[in-house]
C-alpha cells in the first residue's frame, strides 16, 4: 500500500524573511506603532492594562473568599449559636469559640447558646471556606470582598467577635438573605429542646 505523502512547506523561509532586514523593519514598525499609540495617542486608544493598585482596584470576583464576617440577627446580635461546627471543620484550627448560655429569662434560654468569645486568627486561616460550608445557621460568611489589610503587628490579625460583627457583606448589609425564624415568630417551626416535637 502506497503511503500518501503531503509535503508541507517549511514556514518562515521566504526570501523576504531570509534577507532579515524587511522583517526587522516590520518588527520595529509594529513596536513603534505600539509605543506611539500608548504614549502620545488619544486616551481612548491607549491599551494599557496596568492597574495603579492602591489608587485603582480591580473588583474581586463575586465568589471571592475574603475576610470573614459574623452575620447579624435583626436585633443586631450574632446569628451564631456557638455550635462549634466551624471550629471543628476548620483545617487550620484558627477559630476559637467560647459558648455561653443565655440568661434564664431570655426566650432563647435552653434553646440555643451564643458565643461569648469568637476569635479568628486571620494569619492562620487558609481561606478554604469550610467554616462557611459547615455553619448550619448562615452565621459566618466570607463574602466581604476584602482581603486582610497588611499590618506589622500579629495582634491585628486576631479578629474578635466585635470586629467580625462590624464587617458588612459586599452588599453593605450585616444580615444575610436567609431569614431567621426566632422562637415566637409565626414562621417558627416550633421545634425546641424544652417543648419537644
Amino acid at each position: 500500500m502506497a503511503v500518501e505523502v503531503k509535503v508541507i512547506k517549511k514556514p518562515g523561509r521566504t526570501i523576504a524573511e531570509q534577507i532579515y532586514i524587511p522583517e526587522i523593519a516590520k518588527g520595529l514598525g509594529f513596536a513603534m506603532g505600539r509605543f506611539f499609540q500608548n504614549t502620545f495617542g488619544p486616551q481612548a486608544k491607549k491599551e494599557i492594562d496596568t492597574v495603579k493598585y492602591p489608587e485603582e482596584k480591580v473588583e474581586y470576583p463575586e465568589r471571592f473568599r475574603g475576610v470573614h464576617r459574623l452575620t447579624h440577627r435583626v436585633d443586631g446580635s450574632p446569628r451564631c449559636v456557638a455550635c462549634l461546627c466551624c471550629s471543628t471543620a476548620c483545617p487550620a484550627q484558627c477559630i476559637h469559640i467560647e459558648p455561653a448560655e443565655y440568661e434564664p429569662d431570655d426566650p432563647r434560654h435552653g434553646y440555643e447558646r451564643y458565643p461569648s468569645v469568637f476569635v479568628i486568627d486571620e494569619l492562620r486561616c487558609i481561606f478554604c471556606g469550610y467554616c462557611v460550608e459547615a455553619c448550619p445557621c448562615d452565621a459566618i460568611r466570607m463574602d466581604t470582598g476584602i482581603h486582610m489589610p497588611p499590618s506589622t503587628n500579629r495582634d491585628h490579625f486576631l479578629f474578635d467577635k466585635e470586629t467580625l460583627l462590624s464587617i458588612p457583606g459586599r452588599d453593605g448589609s450585616y444580615l444575610t438573605a436567609n431569614p431567621r425564624h426566632e422562637p415566637g415568630d409565626a414562621t417558627h417551626p416550633g421545634i425546641d429542646r424544652e417543648r419537644g416535637h
Binding site: A31, R34, F35, N38, T39, E47, I48, D49, T50, K52
Partner: peptide, 13 residues
Amino acid sequence: RQSAMIQDRLGPS
C-alpha cells in the same frame, strides 16, 4: 518605561 509602553504596560511609576 519605553519597553513598558511597547508592551501595553505602565512601567516604573
